[in-house]
Amino acid sequence: MKNLEKEYKEQISLETPDLWSRIEAGVDAYESSKKEAAPSVSVTDTDTKVVRFDTKKFINIIGKISVAAVLILAVAATYNVTRKGKSDSSTATEAAIADMQNASEATESYDSFKEAESAEMSESPIINDSPSVITNPESDSSYSKDTYPTLSPSEAIRPGELESDTNAEDSMGESADIRLIDKSARDLALSWDDAFIIYKGLTELGLTDITELKAEKDSVDGSLIYGPDYKDISLNVAGFFAGEDKIPYLLFYRTESGIEIIAVKNNETGEFIYINPTE
């Protein structure tokens, strides 16, 4: 008996053809196709054209980039300026709020002052010594440098020192808008900010018992009175009473860069008890 597996395998091996030339041809064909396919992913003449350095194009691109950069910088600068403006406005708003708070405090002190005045009016006799106090405060026996520092109106009432700036006008503008609701009120009103600063300035001038501080609509042209409403007008006039005998006074002041008292006039005698030295 013959071995089935051995006989069969040997027989098939004997029949196995020589396939090497065929296989080699296949390998060569594969390598050729591989080399032909390779240039499509490597640098070729066509690829070189694509990446060739084009000076004009380069300059054109650089120019466009430069223009874009300038535009971006301009936008950024505008944005920063806008932000800064907003920040300043915020600061101004905060200052205005602070001023309003101060004005409120002034109102309270003004009310208490008015109440005290009423009480004194009912008790004290009328003493007409205010002019001497104003003309020469240091000669008055009641004058004290601690209570009334050396008066230098132009210095004492300077815009910066009065904690007021041009932005205050904005807040005053708002106050003016409110006053426009009631014309009669508008005619007589002073903003709390102005009233506080004026009251403080008048006190530094030596005036006491100041009452009924209000705009004098009949004293001058109305356009002069309502400075905040007419921004090109610099002079404002207000009236008030001072001293235990309630002497009427007229106050001339500016508001462009904060409240600045120009002059104070005794409205009974016509005598100016104070004129700003800078005028």
Binding site: I12, S13, E15, T16, P17, L19, I23, G26, V27
Partner: peptide, 28 residues
């Protein structure tokens, strides 16, 4: 391994011509 590979392939496909084609493809 030509004989070995050819024999395996021939054992499955059963035809000489097919076995030769597949064997060539195998080495490629």
């Amino acid at each position: 391994y030509l004989d070995y590979i050819y024999r395996i392939i021939y054992g499955i496909v059963g035809r000489r011509e097919d076995a030769e084609d597949i064997t060539s493809e195998f080495f490629i």
